[in-house]
Every structure is written in C-alpha cells, then in structure tokens.
C-alpha cells in the first residue's frame, strides 16, 4: 500500500447546514470548504456546538446540506437520493461512534461482518483476519458486546468500520468514552490502518492528544473552518486551542 496522498477522498464546497427557522435558526455549518486527502488521517476539532458532528454527518451521507456540495471521491452526495446514500454508506463508508456501536444480539464477529451481511455479500476472510489480528480481537470474536470491555467494543467497531475497505472511515469522538490508555491503543490502531493499509480517516475529537495521532487537524468554530495544522502534536494542538478560544469572542 502506498502512503502517497494525492487525490481527495472527500471534499466539501461551501457547505451550509441550517437547522430551524427564524429566531430558532442555527447555522451549524456556515460555508465550509475542506478537502480530505486519500490515505490521510485528519482530525476535526472545535468547541462544542461548532458543527463538527454536523460536518461529518453531511460528508458521510447521513444528513443533507442546506446549500453547497459534498463529494465522496468523485460522487456528489448532494445529488444522491436517500436510497443511493444508504448504499453508499454501506459500501464506501465506515463509522465509529463514541459508544453503542454494536448490535447487542450479535457476536463480535457477526458485528464485524455486518456491512457484508447487510449487502448480502461474502466477507473477505483474509482481510478480516488481518484486521482482527491487528486489533488483537482474535480470542473475543465469539463474545457478545455485553461481554466485552468498552475498549474492546470500540475496537470491534473499528474492525467493522474497516472490514469492507471503505473509501473513508468517519469516527466521531471514538475515544470519548474510553480511559486514556485504552483510547491510545485504539488511536494507535487507527494510525496503523492509515500507514499500513492506506485507509483514509476522519476523526472528530476534543482531545488534543488524540489529535496528535492525526496527519492534520482542522479547527471549526461557529460552523466555519477557523484554522488548520499539519503534523500536529498534542502540545501544539493544545496551544492552538488556547489561542483560538481566547480569540473566539472577537471572531463570533
């Protein structure tokens, strides 16, 4: 696998998302232009309510924009109907949420192959083995989610997100519910997935040290991109966040 990151895996152009009307109107996204390169690990940061989740949902085809466009590869999501977006989520996108990622009635293995089962396709056993080994889940496959620790659950979720070789994996605060060492383990795996297998990752996080695992950090504020940073480290991100929040009242 190459680490060359030329083409864009996902892209937003003038993305605007408005919730509500009149006085209750909230501009969750207020003209976002962003590009996420293939084979790269990008973190999105920003204060609560700045639109991180909204951006991710719109890029993943879970939600539709009020104005502007989003692309996944060359596909313009804004032109797809719900049915096509569902199929796209199934085949081209992987998700890791903060918690409750798994179907409680299914074993870890069944949860991992779920995207294939939904599509009615046979999973690629070899690739699945690779992913499971990388995540150290080999001896946990027969267990139901309730029998797994939080960290193990998130690792199963990560395996599921990657097993169908999606164009891009979206992770919304994947370590939010984990202690820092368990979180670091998960992030390490995500990093390896990018480095070794060229997986494109987009992760929302509040945690500067999590952002430190990424290749690039994009900072959101009030629905806009307010800054970005290449090759972040935890300390630099923390510094940047401080300056951003200091400047925030003026920027509003």
């Amino acid at each position: 696998m190459s680490t060359a990151a030329n083409g864009s895996a996902a892209r937003a152009e003038g993305a605007v998302k408005v919730y509500g009307e009149g006085d209750a109107e909230v501009r969750a996204l207020d003209g976002v232009d962003a590009e996420f390169a293939e084979g790269r690990f990008t973190a999105i940061m920003g204060p609560s309510g700045s639109g991180k989740s909204t951006l991710m949902h719109c890029m993943a085809g879970l939600d539709s924009l009020t104005a502007g466009r989003v692309f996944l590869g060359d596909t313009d999501l804004t032109r797809l109907d719900e049915k096509a977006r569902t199929r796209l989520r199934r085949d081209e996108v992987g998700f890791i949420f903060q918690a409750f990622n798994l179907v409680p009635t299914l074993t870890a293995a069944e949860n991992i192959t779920l995207p294939f089962d939904i599509a009615g396709r046979k999973p690629d056993r070899q690739w699945m083995g690779t992913v499971v080994d990388a995540l150290g889940l080999g001896d946990r496959l027969k267990h139901k989610p309730a029998e797994l620790s939080g960290g193990q659950q998130q690792r199963v979720a990560a395996a599921r997100a990657m097993v169908s070789r999606p164009k891009i994996v979206f992770a919304d605060e994947p370590t939010g519910a984990l202690d820092s060492s368990t979180g670091a383990e998960l992030l390490g795996f995500m990093r390896r997935a990018v480095d070794e297998y060229g997986q494109t990752m987009l992760m929302v996080t509040h945690d500067p040290s999590a952002a430190g695992f990424a290749d690039r950090v994009v900072f959101l504020g009030d629905g806009r991109i307010v800054d970005e940073m290449a090759d972040p480290t935890a300390e630099r991100v923390l510094d940047r966040m401080k300056t951003l929040s200091d400047g925030a009242p003026g920027a509003g």
């Binding site: 569902t86 179907v103 939904i118 599509a119």
Partner: peptide
C-alpha cells in the same frame, strides 16, 4: 431506536 439508527447508519436499507 439507537441500535436501529446504527444499522441504518452503516447501510441497512429501510426495507431490510
């Protein structure tokens, strides 16, 4: 609800 939402998010069609 949450679980069904998850299934839908990862690509389960309404018909399924």
């Amino acid at each position: 609800t949450r679980e069904i939402g998850l299934l839908r998010a990862i690509g389960m069609a309404p018909r399924q």
